[in-house]
Simulated assay, not measured.
Amino acid sequence: MTVVVIVLAAGYGVGVGLLLPRAVWRLGVEAGEGWRERCPEGHVLPGWLGAARCRVPSGQAPPHTYGRRALPLAALTGTVCAALGAAVGPRPEAVVYVGLAPVLVLLALVDRAVHRLPDVLTLPLAAAAAAGLGAAALLPGAAGDWRRALFGGLLLATGYLALFLVNPAGMGFGDVKLALSLGVALGWYGWGVWAAGAFLGFLYGALYGLFLLLRGSATRGQGFAFGPFMAAGAFTGVLLAGFGA
Rank of each mutant, 00 (worst) to 15 (best):
L19R: 11
A231L: 14
R147N: 12
L154A: 15
C39F: 11
G174C: 11
Y208R: 01
R112T: 13
A75L: 15
R69S: 12
L203G: 05
L214S: 10
L203R: 04
L100M: 10
V105Y: 01
A179M: 08
L104D: 01
L123I: 15
G89D: 08
W194R: 06
G227Q: 07
L165S: 11
Q222L: 12
A195L: 15
R91I: 01
D145Q: 14
H43R: 06
G15H: 10
L138G: 11
A225F: 07
M230N: 03
G183V: 12
L19K: 03
L161K: 04
W146M: 03
A94I: 02
V193Y: 01
T219C: 12
R91T: 02
G85L: 04
L18A: 07
A185C: 14
P92C: 12
G132F: 03
A225G: 13
Y66Q: 05
A9F: 04
V3M: 13
V80P: 08
A108M: 06
L109M: 10
L156E: 05
G221W: 03
G197R: 00
M1V: 13
A9K: 08
S181Q: 08
G237I: 02
L107R: 01
G172Y: 02
A142H: 14
P72A: 11
A113V: 10
L8V: 15
T158F: 14
A157R: 12
L182I: 08
P90A: 15
N167D: 15
A135T: 10
V103S: 12
F229G: 03
G187A: 06
P63C: 09
V96Q: 01
F211N: 04
L27D: 00
A232Y: 03
L154N: 06
M171R: 01
A206S: 14
V88P: 05
A86H: 02
F226C: 02
G34V: 06
F164H: 15
P118R: 13
G190N: 08
A179K: 00
F211S: 13
G223C: 05
A196R: 11
A129K: 04
A225M: 11
W25S: 05
A157Q: 11
G134M: 09
G78M: 09
G15T: 09
A86Q: 03
L109F: 07
F211D: 09
A52Q: 03
L100W: 02
A232I: 12
F224Q: 08
T77Y: 02
A206I: 10
F224V: 09
G34T: 07
Y66C: 02
M1D: 14
L200F: 13
V238A: 05
H43S: 08
G205W: 03
V29Y: 03
T65P: 02
V80C: 11
A179D: 09
A196N: 03
T236H: 14
A179V: 05
